[in-house]
Amino acid sequence: MLYIITRELFYVLLSALLIFIAMELLKPNIVQAYINLNLVLILWLLSGMVLLVTKSRH
């Protein structure tokens, strides 16, 4: 269960990161005004690490 949740979170955070970066390139500060992209990046990396740990157990 944890593995499934973490994997979905990993994918959605990766999608969010890519979409937000594309939006920022098109219109600067459209995302940064409300969401800290550094935070999204850190959460994505953390979800990736947790995913690796849970995958080995899964």
């Binding site: 994918y11 959605v12 939006m23 219109k27 459209i30 409300y34």
Partner: peptide, 20 residues
């Protein structure tokens, strides 16, 4: 679960576009 979290992402994107 996938539907819910991707919907949340979609709503977030729409919110950001609305504010812009």
């Amino acid at each position: 679960f996938r539907l819910i979290i991707f919907s949340m992402l979609g709503l977030t994107i729409l919110f950001l576009i609305y504010k812009a």
